[in-house]
């Protein structure tokens, strides 16, 4: 089993709204970020919380988001630990569109200050 994403990968969190436990906070849903590093595998919390013993082991990634992506303003970054199934490839086509749109902050991700 190889990791789907490596450090520096551009990802987008799923825009889900599950009727159960999840470790993807609402403020980081549907947001674009950059993978800092894989952290190791853990039982998918969404399933493990249901107590049936059938939760899959999934890679967890530290993913960094610029404040402007999360809040529309701000000059800090927020890093969250996210299960692989919370993440999708950030489509380059979408990214070009976003970069062209005024007021977006794509240029801030992954730069020299992007992440340790």
């Amino acid at each position: 089993m190889s990791d789907r994403f490596s450090a520096g990968a551009r990802v987008r969190t799923v825009h889900h709204d599950p009727p159960h436990h999840t470790r993807l906070p609402r403020y980081a849903r549907g947001k674009r970020g950059t993978v800092v590093e894989p952290e190791g595998r853990a039982l998918l919390a969404d399933r493990n919380a249901q107590g049936r013993g059938d939760a899959p082991l999934e890679q967890v990634y530290a993913v960094s988001f610029p404040a402007r992506e999360l809040w529309g303003e701000g000059d800090h970054d927020v890093v969250l630990d996210l299960f692989e199934s919370y993440l999708e490839d950030d489509d380059p086509g979408d990214r070009a569109e976003a970069a062209a749109a005024p007021g977006t902050s794509r240029a801030q991700t992954g730069g020299k200050d992007g992440k340790p």
Binding site: H21, L43, G51
Partner: peptide, 12 residues
């Protein structure tokens, strides 16, 4: 008896 994710789920 239960796991940590079930515990968090119950609080939430």
């Amino acid at each position: 008896v239960y796991n940590l994710d079930e515990f968090r789920d119950a609080i939430e």
